[in-house]
Structure formats: C-alpha cells, structure tokens
Design a binder for these strands. Structure first.
Length: 563
DNA sequence: GCCGTTTTCGGCCCGACTGTTTTCAGTCG
C-alpha cells in the first residue's frame, strides 16, 4: 500500500541523514530495519492496532509512525530533513562516497548536491581536503558520470542471461573448477543491483585476467587476489570472488546473502560460541557445503529464495518447494488469433516438448483492440478451432480459454453466455491501471467473485521499472479468492512477476489458490517459467495450493475446471 | 533504536580492497 511505501521511504531517508550526521551506526541500522519491515508489510500499516508487533519496530518508531498516520506528517523526520541540504542525499548515491565523505565535502567544500559536487571536482576544491589524492578524485569523477547517466536496478530476466553468458565464458578458462552465480540473482529477486559470480580455480591470475579483459567490460573497478569488480558497457556491475574449493560452501552462503540473512546467521553462530565468515564456521571448521554449515548451527538448509530474514529461521525442516519439473501445464498463453506468434498447434507442440499434460489457449478479449482482441463471433469460431485441434492431438489436452479483460468497473469483457462456453477464464486488468486503491480493490473483487472466472491474471498489471500498476488491498483479495475458489496468477514474465513475492506469501498464508503461468506469446517465453518458479519459492507456495500441480482430471471434467 | 531461554543494560557481522598513508580510514557487499 502506498502508506507503507511512503513510510518506508521516510525511514530510509532518516537512516541516511543520521549516517551523514555521524549518529551511531546502530541507530542507523535500526531505522533501515524499520524501513525494510514496512516495505515487506502486506497489510496496510494504518489499519494495524499495534505496529510494535512488526519485528524491528520499537516504541520510538511506533510513535513516529502514529504521528504520521494521525497528522500526515512526521515531526522528527521533518526536523532531520531540514537539518541538511536536500541534495546531499543524492551525493550519497555516488559510488565511493559514503557518509563520512559526504559530511566532509559539505562542511569543508560547500558541496550540497550533485551539481556542486561536480563543480567541486572540476575546480579542484576537493584536492585541498585531507586524504584526497589524485586517484580518489578521478574515481569520484567517474562514479559521478555514472550516477548522472544511470537508471534503475536491472530486471531479473535481463540480468540472468548476462550472468550465464559470463559464466559460460569463464568456465572455459584454464584452471577453473567450479563457477556459479550468487547474490540476489541466486535468490531470484525481481531486480538485481549487480551480478555476483563465485569461482574456484587452480589459476587465480588467469581467471582474473580473463574476467577483467572480457569484451563487454568498460571499466575495471577493483582487481585483487580474490576479488575483482568490473562495470560492463551496459552499465551493469559484475563482481567476481575467487575462493578455495574446500571453502566453496561457506563462500556461496556468504555471497548469496541476503545481507540481513547473513547477519542473523552470524549472530546465531556467536550465541553458540562460533564464528561464521566467508571461509567457514569456526572452531568446528566446516566450510565445504551450505548444508553442513546450516546443520551445525541447528538449522535445515534454507532455500536461496527465502534468505531474506523474513522468518525463514523458524523453518524446522527444508520446505518442499516447487521445481520446474513439477509444472505440468500452462494456463495462460496466446496464439496468432490475438497478439501471439504461434498457431494453436505450435503452442501445443511447445507444451508437449516440455512434458505438459495440459495447455490453455487464452487469447485476448474484444477490448484489447491493439492486441487484436477477439470480438464474440471470432471467439466462438476460435473455440471451435481449439476443440478441433484438441481432438486431433492425443498427447495433450488443449483447453479453450480466453484472457478476458476486467473492465475498469469490474465487469468482464464478454457476456456470461460466451464465458460459459470456455473451459477456462483468465480475467486480467489491462487498462485503467492508475485507479485508486479502493477502486482497484472493488474491480478485482468483482472478478474474483464472478462464478465463471477461474484465474485472475497478473492482478496488479505492473511492469517492473516502468509501471506501478494497481495497488489493491491484497488481504481483501486473498480472502475473497480463497472463499470463491478463484486462483490468483503468478505471472512468470520477468517484466511482470505479478503477483510479487510478498503478495504471493500473503496469498499462501491466506489460503488462496495460485497459478504460475508464462503468458507466452512466443516459443521462448515458455522459458520464463524459471522466473515464476523463483517467485513461487520466494512466496513459499506449497504444491497443494498451486493448481499447476493438479492432474488433468482435476483441471477438466466440466465446463469449469474443478479446482 | 531495538532486543532478551545468559540479559531491562549492554551489546549490536565481518572481511577485502583502495588510496592514502607508514598503520589505517572509508567504503562496499
């Protein structure tokens, strides 16, 4: 909800300002922790009775939150904000400049924002400060140019192929024994800040050389014995860490993160008089595998997707997560009848090649004119064509469906008579995606409660890094979905990933059904399923709640699949 | 500022790399 986001931003900003002002790092961390908790919170913070129930939120923060909810303002935040030039927060974003330098530049060189930092670099003002040599200023100038031109974090689906290409290249370098990606990529986060690659090799020098000399590298930022960092032409930062084979597990654990997961893990080690770092767990000397380290700390192996310090340490055993191989159907796909690039038969062949038992053809409804949405008459003919194709292919069941628009007022884009002819109805919002949260909730609620709707497709309509999409009240939707036996979609397209991870978790906890679909338009789109599987893991979806696990009989047997 | 199966006070993760020093501060992840 946007109140949660607004408050999270306020706490993040307070943390940064406190850092610049030289306050205790623990106080800074406490504020960051509150910000994170608010970001992850699915329910609307303004509807909560006691916010101190949120881990990390204590008395002091609770008072501030209440102050904001009651008055629309937070006195302490405004005082803090007014105590430094507003532009200093941007200066913190420059790589290599941390809180100490920001404060020094501000107080001793009149730097108040990015522009005045640029001026201070150019006119030599910074060179007069202590510990500011030629090289440091050069680095700041370069980082500054990058901040001035760079944009958002990279989407998971854009970063993964880059990482794989680099790994494919490096694993052929002489001496390399193991190489893999770690970091937020391994955790399947929806966006990636940088790519982390971990390797062990018998020839460190050769690997470092090969890495820093890749064609795609525009700048080498650091090159040490065990750590190299480069920036690619695309602007993406890639870090390479080299470790001994025998310490690969400890290193993998450490470099996969998240930072918050690691901190809690190390704290657990300390309470057992042990010490955990990227080289192993001491004094028991365990380092080869992640499993062994978790085990010695009295924990089950924790899947990478949930290593966010959001309650995963409460797991008594490793959760039985859904894998790519478990998925045996896709219930949201397009053909050339609307805006897809495959015929019904080609779609079916793709599904057969992946070992699916069922594929649903769900072309767009009439309102999607730009996507060649089908008017009722064409849809009726399309249903006939799908039935014919289904009869001619024994290896797979082809369902006649449609991705039907949920119109802004919550009604559907086809009348009930036509909807009743379909095996499966995926109802999705496509237009009016800037509605108020209340309108969005009512709109989606109407679709969830419609007796002929099976799945709500990409419920918020967001496009990562581009469009915020709807902001409905998720707990309300989840409760209604559970009650009406309507599944919520996990759209696996890496630009969508909708529902998002925290919403998926809320859906699982609220008992609603989920369906991970690729929304395929082209053959390659089926491969996006892997991003949906990451999301399924991050949401801890269990097999019984994922309709993609259902056997054919459960999906068919009537004009409405019996979920 | 937050937290507690040792604690309501005293802790709060840990190491690599850089650039500047001549033993280390600052930044990053």
């Amino acid at each position: 909800m946007s109140t949660n986001t607004d408050l999270a931003n306020i706490f993040h900003t307070m943390a940064t300002i406190l850092e610049i002002k030289g306050e205790s790092g623990f106080k800074v961390n406490a504020n960051t922790k509150v910000a994170r908790a608010l970001e992850d919170l699915v329910e609307d913070v303004s509807s909560m009775e006691d916010v101190t129930k949120i881990p990390g939120v204590g008395k002091s923060s609770a008072t501030k939150i209440k102050n904001y909810l009651d008055t629309g303002k937070m006195v302490e935040f405004e005082e803090l904000r007014d105590s430094i030039p507003a532009g200093l927060l941007d200066v913190m974003r420059v790589q290599g400049i941390g809180p100490k330098k920001v404060r020094q530049f501000w107080q001793e060189a009149d730097v108040t924002d990015i522009e005045s930092l640029r001026a201070a670099v150019d006119d030599g003002r910074l060179a007069n400060l202590p510990r500011m040599g030629k090289k440091t200023i050069e680095n700041i100038a370069q980082a500054l140019a990058f901040v001035e031109s760079s944009g958002d974090r990279t989407r998971l689906g854009d970063a993964m192929p880059i990482a794989q290409e680099i790994i494919t290249f490096l694993e052929r370098v002489e001496g390399v024994t193991t190489i893999t990606f770690a970091g937020s990529l391994r955790r399947g986060k929806e966006t990636i800040g940088d790519i982390d690659i971990l390797a062990s090799t018998e020839n460190q020098e050769a690997l470092a050389q090969a890495f820093c000399n890749m064609d795609s590298v525009s700048m080498v930022q650091a090159k040490g014995e065990t750590k190299c960092s480069v920036r690619l032409n695309s602007g993406m930062q890639v870090d390479l860490r080299v470790v001994d084979e025998g310490q690969f597990g400890a290193a993998l654990l450490y470099f996969t993160g998240s930072k918050e997961h690691n901190i809690t893990l190390r704290e657990k080690a300390i309470t057992q008089d042990k010490k955990l770092n990227e080289y192993g767990l001491e004094p028991v000397n365990i380092s080869e595998t992640e499993e062994a380290i978790y085990q010695d700390l009295g924990l089950p192996w924790i899947p990478t997707e949930i290593r966010e310090d959001r309650g995963e340490f409460d797991c008594k055993r490793t959760p039985n997560l859904i894998t790519l191989q478990n998925i045996k159907s896709d219930l949201h796909c397009h053909t050339t009848a609307s805006d897809g690039h495959m015929s019904i038969e080609e779609l079916a062949m793709q599904a057969i090649a992946r070992g699916y038992h069922t594929i649903a053809v769900t072309d767009h409804s009439q309102s999607q004119a730009q996507a060649n949405g089908l008017k009722p008459d064409r849809m009726r003919m399309h249903i006939d064509a799908i039935r014919k194709a289904n009869a001619s292919m024994s290896e797979i069941t082809i369902l006649a469906g449609s991705e039907v628009d949920i119109l802004p007022d919550g009604t559907l884009d086809y009348d009930d008579e036509l909807l009743a002819l379909l095996d499966i109805v995926v109802a999705s919002p496509h237009a009016a995606l800037t509605q108020s949260p209340d309108q969005a909730t009512q709109r989606l609620l109407a679709a969830i409660e419609h007796p002929l709707v099976h799945i709500i497709g990409h419920p918020t309509g967001r496009i990562i890094n581009k469009r915020k999409g709807l902001e409905p009240d998720i707990p309300t939707l989840v409760a209604a979905a559970a009650k009406n036996n309507t599944a919520l979609e996990i759209n696996a397209n890496s630009y969508r990933l909708d529902l998002r991870d925290t919403h998926v978790r809320a859906a699982v906890n609220g008992g609603s059904l989920l369906a991970v679909n690729t929304d395929s338009h082209r053959p390659d789109d089926f491969n996006q399923l892997r991003y949906g599987i990451f999301l399924v893991g991050r949401g801890l979806v269990i097999p019984g709640k994922c309709i993609k696990f259902f056997i054919p009989d459960a999906l068919l047997n009537s004009s409405r699949p019996d979920f």
